[in-house]
Design a protein around this nucleic acid. Structure first.
Length: 276
DNA sequence: ACTCAGGTATTAC
DNA sequence: GTAATACCTGAG
């Protein structure tokens, strides 16, 4: 599969904080998606996506958000204000990936009060400890993210892998609830944003921010706008919003209307790069 | 040894 | 209803 460079770059997409299983190896990006180990290789005119090992069981065009109109998204956001204009320019290669619901829910539960290197560490450890082996590349073994059934067999203490900390309790309870209540997470696709958020927050360890991330990155609710510590900084320092949860929410709901989730991602990436 | 990054659940107003 | 506080650990 080919990805045009016009609205995609591997660095912007894989390092903007939305995913935890892609890493740079030599000049390429290597990542586990579903049952496949993928390589994204930069060519002169485009990026080439290929399967290195395992089986491709997701629609790559969908995964890479090919149906979204990035020209329209960027034009709309650029015209909104000077910060969005700069942010879109800086993160012009970002695609919002459409990722697997269960993996995303567990990964973002782990993300709570945690930093990206440690989140990656925990997700990797869960995969290599409890997920199925896919294949190796450049001397490193890659594993699937564990299924619900695989995590169900793991006890509370075993779940406490590197980077997990006390969040093993939340992951454990979530797995337990999914099984006990016989929940099909895919039902959230059929819910609207408010229903989906309310539902996701019934899981222990899922609050407003984690719910918004899962809605945005897995359930295609592109109006979700996760407010984390970086976004708060943007809202405070650039948009001069008072430091209270209510004030942030009120502003975000009224200001970031169309393409809100995309706006959040450009701004988040922009703020993180500027703070380096 | 010490500091820092990080949302949620809980507790206290 | 909203605001303070504890939670946990790898990296530097």
């Amino acid at each position: 599969m080919k990805l045009s460079k016009e609205h995609f770059s591997a660095k912007d997409t894989f390092e903007c904080g939305q995913c935890f299983r892609w890493e740079k190896v030599n000049d390429d990006y290597i990542g586990v998606v579903g049952s496949a180990l993928l390589k994204v290789c930069e060519e002169s005119t485009h990026y080439e996506v290929s399967v290195i090992a395992g089986e491709l069981d997701v629609d790559l065009a969908h995964y890479f958000d090919e149906t979204a109109d990035y020209e329209a998204i960027k034009t709309t956001l650029r015209d909104k204000d000077v910060y969005l204009s700069e942010a879109v320019q800086l993160g012009k290669g970002i695609r919002l990936l459409n990722q697997a619901p269960f993996e995303l829910l567990i990964s973002f539960i782990i993300s709570s009060n945690n930093n990206i290197p440690k989140i990656k560490m925990a997700v990797e450890a869960l995969s290599s400890s409890f997920g199925q082996y896919i294949g190796s590349y450049e001397g490193k073994a890659y594993y699937r993210f564990p299924t619900l059934e695989e995590l169900l067999k793991v006890d509370l203490e075993q779940l406490k892998v590197k980077g997990m900390g006390y969040r093993n309790v939340a992951v454990y309870k979530t797995v337990e609830k999914l099984v006990a209540d016989q929940i099909d997470l895919c039902n959230v696709f059929g819910m609207d944003y408010d229903q989906g958020k309310q539902f996701l927050k019934t899981f222990y360890g899922v609050g407003d921010k984690v719910a918004d991330c899962v809605l945005l990155f897995a359930f295609e609710k592109k109006n979700a706008f996760p407010i984390d510590t970086w976004v708060k900084r943007i809202l405070r320092e650039l948009y001069h919003i008072e430091d209270s949860k209510k004030a942030y929410q009120t502003f975000v709901n009224s200001y970031f209307t169309e393409f809100a989730g995309y706006a959040q991602q450009y701004l988040f990436y922009y703020m993180r790069l500027k703070s380096e």
